[in-house]
Design a protein around this nucleic acid. Sequence first.
DNA 1: CTAGGGTTAG
Length: 854
Amino acid sequence: MAATVAPPAAPPPTSATIRSLTAAGNHGAALRALSSLSASSAQLDHFALPPAIKSAAALRDGRAARALHAAALRRALIHRPTPAVGNALLTAYARCGDLDAALTLFAATPPELRDAVSYNSLISALCLFRQWERALDALRGMLAEARHDVSSFTLVSVLLACSHLAGDDGRRLGREAHAFALKHGFLDEGRERFPFNALLSMYARLGLVDDAQSLFRTTAAAFSPGGGDVVTWNTMISLLVQGGRCAEAVEVLYDMVALGVRPDGVTFASALPACSRLEMLALGREIHAVVLKDGDLAANSFVASALVDMYAGNERVGNARRVFDMVPEPGRQLGMWNAMICGYAQAGMDAEALQLFARMEAEAGCAPSETTMSGVLPACARSEGLAGKEAMHGYVVKRGMAGNRFVQNALMDMYARLGEMDVARRIFAMIDPRDIVSWNTLITGCVVQGHVAEAFQLVTEMQLPSSSSSTEDERCMPNNITLMTLLPGCAAQAAPARGKEIHGYAVRHALESDIAVGSALVDMYAKCGCLAASRAVFDRLPRRNVITWNVLIMAYGMHGLGGDAVALFDQMAAGGEATPNEVTFIAALAACSHSGLVDRGLELFRGMERDHGVKPTPDLHACVVDVLGRAGRLDEAYNIITSMEPGEHQVSAWSSLLGGCRLHRNVELGEIAAGRLFELEPDEASHYVLLCNIYSAAGMWEKSVAVRARMRRQGVAKEPGCSWIEVDGAIHRFMAGESAHPASAEVHAHMDALWERMRREGYAPDTSCVLHDVGEAEKAGMLRYHSEKLAIAFGLLRAPAGAAIRVAKNLRVCNDCHEAAKFMSKMVGREIVLRDVRRFHHFRDGSCSCGDYW
DNA sequence: CTAGGGTTAG
C-alpha cells in the first residue's frame, strides 16, 4: 500500500509576506494571502494592512478596499498608530474611481492625525479626477497648517495641477512653484529627478517650450548620471515636437543617443511624428529598424501607429499599410486604425480611407473616435455626393461628437470645400474655444473660395482678445499653416504688397525657413511676377522638398525661361534633395512648351518612366501634346492621343491639341479635337471659343457663327473675363462692359485717349478673337474695353511713376491685348507685366519676353 | 503619495 504523503502545509502568511508580494507587483497573490490571514486575524495588523490596500488599489478592486476599510475600522487601525492605513485607503478609493469616499475619509480624519502624506494623497487624488483648482486648495490647506513639509511628491502633483489651469494662472503659479523648487534645493545635483521632470512637462503642457528648454539646458546635467533619465529626454523630445520645433527634437534625440541613453518606445513614438513632418524618411526607417530588432517595441501599439503615420507622412502609404497589416488584429488598437485612415486621407486615397473606416467597426468592433472622424471627414468631403456628407454630419451628431473641436474643424472644412461658406461660418461661430486650426480652416476656406479680403480680416480678428464669454484665452497667433494658406491668395490676386507683408511676418517669427512657408513664398513671388525675389527665397531656404523645387521650375517656365527651368530640373534630378514626381514633369514639360524647346521636352518625356519611375498620366500626355501642338507638330500630337489607353481621361490632351490647332490655324484637326471635346465636356465654354477662333482666323464666318449659335442653344456661357491690379496694397478689379469700379469713367476715358494715340501711331487691332458677329468697327470698340486693357489704363493713371504695371487675368490673354500691351509698353515707356492663367508676358519697349511664342 | 507617448487642420 503506497503511503500518500501530504504536501507540507504552507507556512501561514505574515504581514511581511504580504508586503513582499505587493512590492513585487504580485497583487492578486497579496490579496489571497490576506484573505487566509483574515481567518486567523491575529496577523492582520497595521503592518499588513497598507500593502494589502495598495494591492487592492493596483487591482482597482473597490470591494476589497471597502472590506479592508471595514476590517481596519473594527480594529481601530485607520489613524493609529500612524496615518498610514487611512492614507493608503484614500488613494485606494481614488484609484477605484470613488473620489467621494476618498474625500469623506480625509474629512473624517481629525487634523492632528493627518501627516504630509495625507495631504499629498489628497492632492494627487484630486489631480487624478482632474480637479485642478481643488487640488491647489488642498495645497493651501496643507500650507495653512504650517507643520507639513512640502516634499517632491507634493511638488509633482502641484505642478501637474498648475499645468492644467486656464489662462495666466497656470503660468504664474507654475513659475512660483519653479522658484520654490529652486529655493528649497529640489533641483540641486543628486536630488531625485521627479520634480525636475514634472517641471519640464508642466512647461510643455503650458506650451512654454522656451522655458522648458532653458530649464533643460541649465539643470539637466545635475540629473544625468549615465547620460540622464530616459523620461527627461522623452519629455524634451515630445514637447519640442508638439511645439512644432521638430528639427530641435531630432537634435535632442541624437544628443540622447550620443550620451548613451537607450531610447524606448516612448522616445520613438514621440520622435516619429518629427520624421513625418520634416520628411526625414531615412531617420524614420532607422527607427523602424531598431524597433524591429527589439520585439517589445514592435508590440507597442503607440510605436506602430507612429510608424504608420511616419510612412504616410513621407508619401509611403504602401509601407504604412504593411506596418498596419503586420500588427495582428486583436492588437490593432484605435490609434492604428486612426493613423492608417488619416494616412490614406492625406494621400488623397479617399476610397481606401472610407473603406477602412467602414471596416474598423464592422469587422474589428473598434468604435470610431473623434480623431477617426476628423480623419475621414476630409476624405468624405472630396468624394460621394452631398447626401453622403450630410449623412456623415448626422452620424457625428448622433454619436455625440459634434461638440468636439477637431470634429467641428473637420466639418467646417468639409462645408467650406463644398462652397457652403455660410454653413462653415455657422459651425465656426459655435466652436468654443477656437484653436489655431479652427481659424486656419476658415481662413483657408475663404482663400479657396476667393474671399481673400475676408481671409485677411480673419487674420486680424484671430489676434484680438476674445470678446465672447469663454474663460479660455482664444487669441491665436498666425502660424506657418496660416501663412502657407494666405500666400496662394496673394498669388492668385497677384498682390505682392500683401505677400511681402506676410514674408515680413514670417521673418519676424522665424517661420521663413519652414519648407511649406518657403515654398509658398517662392510660388507667390513668382506668380506676382517677381522672379528674382522668388529665386532669392529659394536660395536662402535651408531645406527644400519636391514641392519647393516644382514651384521654382514652374516659376521659370511661367516667365518664359524654359532653358533655365530645364537646367533646374537637371540640377534637381542630380542633387538628391528631392525626387522628381509627376508634378515636376508637368512643370518641366510646360516650361519646354512655352519656350519652344520641343526636342528637350520629348527627351524628358521619354526618360521619365525609364530614369525616374514616373508613369505617364493623362495630365502628362496632355503636356506632351501641348509641347508638340504649340510647335505646330500637330500630327505627332494627334498620334500621342490615339496611343493613349482607351479608358484614359483624354479631355486635357484633346484641349491641348485644340489649342495647338488654333495657334497654327489647322481647321481639319481642330474640328476633330473639338468634336471629341463637345462629347466629353459639352458644357465647357472654352472648347467652343477655341473652335470659333479657328474658324474666324480662317475666314470661315458662317461656321464660326454656327458654333456660337450652338453655344447659345445649349446654354453654355463663357466665363466673363476679369483682370485686376494691385495699387498701394489695394486690389482693383475690372471686367469688360462693366463700370463697377469707382474710377470706371476716368479709366474708360483714359483708355479712349490711349487708343486714339495708338491708332495715330500705327496700331492695327487684331479682331480675330471677337466672337460677336458684328462689324469690324464695332469689334474694335469691344476690344478696346477688354478687362486687361482697362486694368493697364488704371495702372498708368494710379501706379507710382516709373513702376512696372502688373496686371493679372483670369483667362488667357487674347491676341489683341497681347499686341496692344506690347505697343503701349513702347508708346508710354513703361514695363507692363501681364499674367494670365498659365504664364507671364513681360512687355518692355515694344517687345515681349515670350518672343510672341505663346 | 510622484513624472513622459501616438492618431486631427494644411
